[in-house]
Design a protein around this nucleic acid. Structure first.
Lengths: 145, 145
DNA sequence: AGCACTTGGTCGATGTCATCGGTCATGGTG
DNA sequence: CACCATGACCGATGACATCGACCAAGTGCT
């Protein structure tokens, strides 16, 4: 289904998604029309879900990053989910098994803002916040083999 | 420093990082050389850290995704950090304040694999695992304003 | 076995795009 | 006020993506 060449293409694009078809052709040993066709198929099959960009939140003043575990109060699950989605400083959120219903990543400019945002949640949920000190593993791909 | 046009460019690239300079020019109302120059500056200043691709781990058999909180045993912090980095199924990991030293995202193909991988960590750390059921907020940008 | 069909590739022509040098308007500064 | 730095535009040129025509290899059917 996805062969070695597809993996080479994906790995190359993971590194730099603006690579030209010609460059991808050289890397993979195919011609550029073939590469274009392969990318089209990978997109079609939903393997390649999108081309995006990595930005540095610090450049917009987001000095702090936190992982917040969120346990809604009884009957408040829907409301809490809606609130998380509505607060744009939550840049990702998973709904998980276990006591903590949600685990979310939060970017804030200051401790004060952290406090303000969490207070809004605290009327509907208990939260547990861990400040990110370092990121030993940056977003990467699991092995494709 | 980063003005409205830069934000438009970043937002557009977040959606589709393979947009041509010409397309970005139309979106932003500039000429393509100007767009190229702005991107160059954004990269130079480290605002734009990279162009990447979003892939679907399910297409490679990763049916399960878990958030793992990891608390190293006394004296094992370095070793645990090295181990996490060495296990490619950990696709992201933050070192945080609080009792849990690390919070990591893990992709596995089966419960059995989950068990195997966590056992390797459990000789050096206590872990707490939450299976991802749903992702109410997909990776997005915090407000730039 | 042989033939037709499908799949995935190349090649070459054409039109689109990125890039580079030159130019100009603007705003801040000595 | 004059100067310089910045950030934009334009036009020419070379690089690139795209499209159609063609080809080779594997598959299944008679």
């Amino acid at each position: 289904m996805t062969d070695d060449i597809d993996q080479v293409l994906i790995t190359a694009l993971m590194d730099d998604s603006r690579l030209s078809l010609k460059a991808l052709a050289q890397i993979s040993g195919l011609s550029s029309p073939s590469v274009a066709e392969r990318l089209r198929r990978l997109e079609e099959r939903g393997v390649l879900k999108g081309y995006t960009v990595e930005i540095d939140p610090k450049c917009f003043g987001y000095q702090l990053q936190a992982i917040v575990r969120i346990r809604p109060l009884p009957g408040q699950l829907q409301e809490v989910e809606r609130q998380i989605q509505a607060i744009p400083e939550f840049t990702e959120c998973d709904k998980v098994t276990g006591d903590d219903c949600f685990i979310a990543r939060l970017h804030v400019r200051s401790m004060e803002q952290l406090d303000t945002l969490l207070d809004r949640l605290n009327t509907h949920a208990e939260t547990n916040t861990a400040i990110v000190k370092k990121t030993p593993v940056k977003r990467r791909l699991p092995p494709m083999a």
